[in-house]
Amino acid sequence: MPFPGDDHTGARIAHHRKRAGLTQRGLAQKIPYSYSLLTQVESGHKPASPDLVATVAQALCIDVTALTGQPYVTELQQDRLAELIRPIREALDLYDLGADPQISPRPAPELVAAAQRLCQQVRATKLHDAARDLPGTMAEITTAAHRTPSSELWAALSSTYRTAHDVAVKLGYYDLSTVALDRMDWAASRASDPLLSAVRQYMRALVYFREGEYTIGQRLISSGQGLLEQSPQTRERHAVTGQLHLGASIIAARARDQNAVTTHLAEARSYADRVGEATDVHWLSFGPTNVAVHAVSANVEMRQYGEALRHAADVRIPKDWALSRAAHFHIDQARAQMEAGRSEAALKSVVTARRLAPQQTRYHSGARETIRGLVHLSRRTPDTLDHLAAWVGL
């Protein structure tokens, strides 16, 4: 049976396809997916995978969010998160106005610690707390950096911009995330930190990855690697280099370049063997665990679901690992399990993701499409699945 109602990604694909004057066969000829799959997705008989959505968005010259329906405003309003977005948007616009005479900022060490706490909140998926605290902290550090410029303060300000990007992405405000990355570059250049600038290029690459622009994403990764040449050979540089290779592996997977995926994962693994779990470097999750998790994600992106599950079986998540990354792994695993016909295991993985990171999972388009797929596959919807479907607004 199809998904209930017409407010799903497949229906949006059909709407925008028709607006572009294309038949289903016409669109199928523009994308690396079959006409049969496209018809099933549009009718709601199959979930729309993130790679299909990105490819269709690129073919129709529209944003991915037009097809996914993000941001999910109804749920955001229920969680009282929507009201926190405007203050973040306004705080991002203060960057070039100089010091605010009405603000008396705390000492620099306290401001740096405040910026770090925001990163911790996002990694712990406390999105409401991070979104609530972010605007005031951002405005305070902006004033401090303009009054007494220092690399330390500019780096802290760049960190708050990164937090704004992370919050915006997780809640589906991709336009805002792009603004935040522009501000991050502005502050990183003043901090004179090539590692921070390279991390920013990595994050930009992921923006284009989501939109299906893989060539641009690969160029941004290369740009980030070039910036690293300005930095000495340290553990921190090795961690950022390894993370860039992980980003490149996922972009290559979407581009169906198996050789590049293998090469980038091997390079990342060699750096991980040198630095260990480097979660203390620019709030990355780089290390052996993240390499293993990316091997799963890469195979999911290449639709090699059996291979993805083989790699997933070997993943051991450290107890102190970022909940945001752990939940993302379980969402990827759920997709592979669903596609492999292991619906019960997929449901357990989604439930685990929700337990670890409820807000992130609720607004994750991949999690929502997996739940939709499980609803369709289930002849009799289990109570847990029925509850999940209602929770994400299906």
Score class of each variant (00 low, 15 high):
Ser231Met: 05
Leu323His: 11
Leu195Asp: 02
His364Ala: 10
Tyr95Phe: 14
Ala156Pro: 03
Asn299Gly: 02
Gln201Pro: 11
Asp314Gln: 13
Arg204Ser: 13
Ile216Lys: 12
Ile216Ser: 11
Ala268Asn: 06
Leu81Ile: 02
Tyr72Pro: 03
Arg237Asp: 00
Leu153Gln: 07
Ala66Phe: 05
Pro71Asp: 02
Gly26Pro: 10
Leu60Pro: 00
Leu134Met: 08
Gly287Asn: 01
Ala248Tyr: 03
Gly366Asn: 03
Asp185Trp: 11
Ala108Gly: 07
Leu118Ile: 02
Asp280Glu: 09
Met302Gly: 06
Trp283Phe: 15
Ala188Ser: 09
Asp386His: 13
Pro71Ile: 04
Ala180Arg: 06
Phe3Met: 15
Met302Val: 03
Glu236Thr: 07
Glu110Ser: 14
Tyr173Ser: 08
Arg80Glu: 15
Thr68Asp: 01
Tyr214Ile: 12
His311Asp: 07
Met203Ser: 15
Phe329Ser: 00
Ser197Val: 14
Glu75Val: 12
Met338Trp: 15
Tyr72Ala: 04
Thr137Phe: 00
Val296Met: 08
Pro71Val: 03
Leu356Ser: 05
Thr361Asp: 06
His330Phe: 10
Leu97Lys: 13
Leu244Gly: 03
Ile216Pro: 02
Gly26Phe: 06
Pro32Gln: 13
Leu227Gln: 10
Gly393Trp: 02
Arg204Val: 14
Lys18Phe: 14
Leu195Asn: 00
His45Leu: 14
Glu90Gly: 09
Gln78Glu: 15
Leu84Pro: 02
Ala205Pro: 07
Val300Leu: 06
Gln78Ala: 14
